[in-house]
């Protein structure tokens, strides 16, 4: 369980960085970047939301893992 959480934390962090990269690169395809972000159909902002969520998941699963680790000790 502890190990799963810690591995998940790293995987989520990797996914966060992956989506960060994707959001930057995908945004570059738009001629008007600002307009693309404002447009709800555009994917940039949705990808950016994933960045926040994955980093948050990584952080949360680490804390949980750390908590259980200390608790089991």
């Amino acid at each position: 369980m502890i190990k799963t959480l810690k591995v998940s934390s790293i995987i989520f962090a990797c996914l966060g960085f992956f989506f960060l990269l994707v959001s930057v690169l995908s945004g570059l395809n738009y001629p008007d970047y600002w307009q693309a972000i404002q447009d709800s159909t555009a994917s940039i902002d949705n990808i950016s939301k994933s960045v926040y969520v994955f980093f948050l998941l990584s952080f949360s699963s680490y804390i949980l893992g750390d908590y259980f680790e200390n608790f089991s000790e």
Binding site: K6, A13, G16, V51, F55, S58, F59, Y62
Partner: peptide, 15 residues
């Protein structure tokens, strides 16, 4: 975007 990259690197370092 190098700013958030530098900010979130510690997520790996916690381990």
């Amino acid at each position: 975007y190098l700013i958030p990259v530098l900010v979130f690197i510690p997520l790996f370092l916690l381990h």
